[in-house]
Design a protein around this nucleic acid. Sequence first.
DNA 1: TTGTAAGCGTTATCAT
DNA 2: ATGATAACGCTTACAA
Lengths: 328, 328
Amino acid sequence: MATIKDVAKAAGVSVATVSRVINNAENVKEETKSAVEKAIQTLHYSPNGLGRNLRRLETKRILVLLNTISNQFFSRVVKGIEDKAREENYTVMICTTRGNRKNLNDSIALLQSKVVDGAIVMTREMPEEEFASLCRAYPIVCACEPWEGNAAPRVGIDDFTASFDAVEFLIHHGKEKIALFEGGKGSYSSYLRELGYREALKKHGIPIEEALLFQEGYTYNAGIRGIDKLLQQRELPQAIFAFADSTAIGAVKRLSEKGISVPEDISVMGFDNTAVSEMCLPSITTVAQPQYEIGWKAMELLSSQLNGVPKLKSITLPHRLIQRDSVK
Amino acid sequence: MATIKDVAKAAGVSVATVSRVINNAENVKEETKSAVEKAIQTLHYSPNGLGRNLRRLETKRILVLLNTISNQFFSRVVKGIEDKAREENYTVMICTTRGNRKNLNDSIALLQSKVVDGAIVMTREMPEEEFASLCRAYPIVCACEPWEGNAAPRVGIDDFTASFDAVEFLIHHGKEKIALFEGGKGSYSSYLRELGYREALKKHGIPIEEALLFQEGYTYNAGIRGIDKLLQQRELPQAIFAFADSTAIGAVKRLSEKGISVPEDISVMGFDNTAVSEMCLPSITTVAQPQYEIGWKAMELLSSQLNGVPKLKSITLPHRLIQRDSVK
DNA sequence: TTGTAAGCGTTATCAT
DNA sequence: ATGATAACGCTTACAA
């Protein structure tokens, strides 16, 4: 590969001049400029980003940290991040942890070793305190997943209230016995949503049955498993509130296999308003999160942080209920 | 941020020694080593990757180039890539083009500027010849999307035969009038699959009706649009073969809205065997691609290329038919 | 076992 | 308008 030196030699100028041409500096004679450009052409020269980054101590790249990319919900958030990033001339690189601590460490190494300027983090495979100290050390913004700390700003919805609203909606539709398919013990968003559920039932004087709470995770198979457990109980609830659309869809699927139809026999409510929730039959009534905007705002916070603005506050964006066919 | 110099000073040694400690070199006295490690601790030092990469002229990172991450099909391929990459000590970074030429250029810049060592490309937003010259210049492996050139190896299925087999399967189920929901004019995989369709009909002496071929793309909405166009024709076909599961699901959805049920009134066949094809109602009979293995093999080819092995041949992996409920 | 110093490919400062 | 040259942070001969 040709380097800046080769180009300089070929064009009969100094490396400084070549650098000026590459970076569109004002003060280069038209003649010299074209000579350099010609040399660049013939040598197929392309500046080495590592050298440039090293010198400038910035990369104009940011990292998006996800558990997995096979998740419709996050992919829409990423779109928001990407669009805002483009506007600010950042390149977005996505890394996935797949729930694996080693992968997480590798990704964090990208921050430490300055391969990226900052990160937007949507997964939390790390002890709280450790994560907090990372946030203090590097430009980091959290998206979606809430946490108790505040070492980094977070952009997302109010999980408690969103859940509260959804449950109240079900209650207004005459449901009292409502099963919860939650996101799993480790998830703080799930924890907050459970609190919202409890509060809503309490407000309406409905007793809470702990046997109706299932901690199977945010996946499709969680819905399958949840139904299998639920069917072992002696009475079916009137509704199921799943904390992810795919879980809701898994539930609908298993119910239908068992000859129970939604929404005639039981109502099912999802969460996230991902594309599938509209695609499936019946379409899923769900709590919409403004995914795209969450991503956009997160990137906005990160970029201002990278431009020296002191760490900004967290942002809570509005959720809303989407009525479709799975709740009657 | 502390640099290697600061550590050297703090530990009272040279930078070379610090470097040795960082890289676990053999010949460092235990005593010196622990002194350096202590200095690293107190200074919160972490080596700057840019300097290291610049010196080594390699990054141990590879790029995965996708159109979008909101695609179940590709996310499974990426998993295969990631797992193999981990085994070989590479970090995977994903960039998306979103069909935008500028984004593609940004991503390619990562190759040119040596931010990554090589790339696995699954999108083709570029004139053939231009892409070929890129492939000659950098370590690149293609996955999934076939192309006529061979400047880079490609890992994927035999699209022609896969389609041929699927159509013959439909014919064996008594379908003769089969509509095709294709991937769009620009897609070479779609083109090959159409050829497979034509060949299968020809073999069984079934005349081809050009009016049954729809070029709406690989998306859910393509399925919706396809049905709307199809319903304007005077007679419904006996089957629809969609070149993507999500397109098949879109078709099923629209059909059901129009009171036409699958598979009773019409059969629908998908392609890819993505998770949703199993999740929806009815579940979709489809052509399975070994996504995970495609990703794994692609990474295998890339890594051998990065290790100096001359460019290897393309690999064709087997497809298979998955019978579910959408074809009767 | 350790240190010195060159060099990786840039950019930026300071002369000229 | 252009050129020398010193960084940027690291690794690695080569010397000691």
